[in-house]
Design a binder for these strands. Sequence first.
RNA 1: GGCCCCUUCGUCUAGCCUGGUUAGGACAUCAGAUUUUCGAUCUGAGAACACGGGUUCAAAUCCCGUAGGGGUCACCA
Length: 447
Amino acid sequence: MTNSSVRVRFAPSPTGHLHIGGVRTALYNWLFARNNGGKFFLRIEDTDRVRSTQESTDVIFENMEWLGFDWDEEPRYQSNRLGIYDKYIDKLMKDGLAFEVEGGAVSFKVKEKAPLVFDDAVHGKISFDPTLIDDFIIRKADGFPTYNFACVIDDVEMGITHVIRGDDHTSNTPRQQMVYNGIGAKLPVFAHIPMILGEDGTRLSKRHGATSVADYRNRGYLPEALLNFLALLGWSPGHDEELLSIKDMIEKFSLDRVNKTSARFDNTKLDWMNGQYIMDAKVDSITESLKPFIEDAGIDHKLLDKDWLHKLVELYQDRFKTLKEFPLKTAFFFNDDIQFNEKAVKKFLQKDAPPGTEQIGVILEDVCSELSGIADFSVDAIEASLRALIKKYNIGFGKLAQPVRVAVSGDSVSASIFETLELLGKEKSITRIRHAVKTFCGQRETN
RNA sequence: GGCCCCUUCGUCUAGCCUGGUUAGGACAUCAGAUUUUCGAUCUGAGAACACGGGUUCAAAUCCCGUAGGGGUCACCA
């Protein structure tokens, strides 16, 4: 069921970062619009002259684009629309519904007595008693409108049909409803979506670490993963699938499947989901996304061989959950001055290793001569020669692979040893193994 | 404190509207399989209807109350 007359908006205030909760609000609005074939608008609510900054506005656009949102028409700026608000205020004053207060501000006069009821799309009927609501300022002394007023005027002027916003606005609704009534406008459909809480169940704040989109971007999350995760915090498609493409979400989205309860932000699940997107992505696309993170790790990716990097990313594709982890896990490929894990060295290279492995220095020397004899330093050739060696020494494969792994990578954890050696290259592999033997095995270099 | 909203595994949720399910899935956890390590993957396990009253043959589902949580009470948005 589509309704192409649907018009919704995302209306952030440019007073800081683009908050992750705001992103989900934007997402729900956007999904709802696209699901219905309607319009999605952006409106910058910059009526706080002190806190609004151009920088914040730039950040909003930049991150909205990064997330993949698109919007209809040019974004509106409330600071450009002062004349419109004034026009309505004049009318309201004429009608006795607004009056000037001390200091030059204008206040709305609350005259309503009957309960203010609206039918919330996610909560059902919600009712407030207007006699409990005080008159409220609609135009500040500086001439700028306040939120509860500007918001209504713009929504009316823009023909907004559905106001989808955070739960924290529920108690603003009766005030806004009075403004709608006061100017004789029809109420839109309100949909108050639950808040996103931190992992500890309290309101998401700086205390929880990342709260802005930029934070998540910098931590190496993919926009599609972030959106997928956010969509599911408070909404369910009604089936068991959890990995949803943008297309899936647009097709399935509906307001009546939005939850009423606030949700905690589960970083662990986000990590899992991001990992799934990384695994499913095309290697080239991930490599591209990885570049800034490789740069950040102090590696000039432009100096890297394209095919080599492609292979490395492919090898590690299911081993990192965030882009940021990649340069950490692959550091030993880029830096010859590798860090050795003491425990790993002790266990696999040193003399007090378990019986049967005290010859490890000798065996590693043999590995080096075998490797140096390989003309075509490929995975297959490397595997063949290492397999031949375990036969020669009559040892399990792990007895050989682990020492080699520690020698070349510094730790007992890495991707397949064959691929690792291949990507490291013949010279580096041999140099590192020899160096490890010399440093840790108490053996002399044989030549 | 007033007003408003909310309450299913540790977490995100399906189920609720149109009472009858072994209360399902996912993340996490644990166990097993696989493996050259880790990861990934596969299989399996434990894990929830906040509490108390009703209504009913039957309540997670409908009604009332209690408790708990959240939001909001600005010339901020």
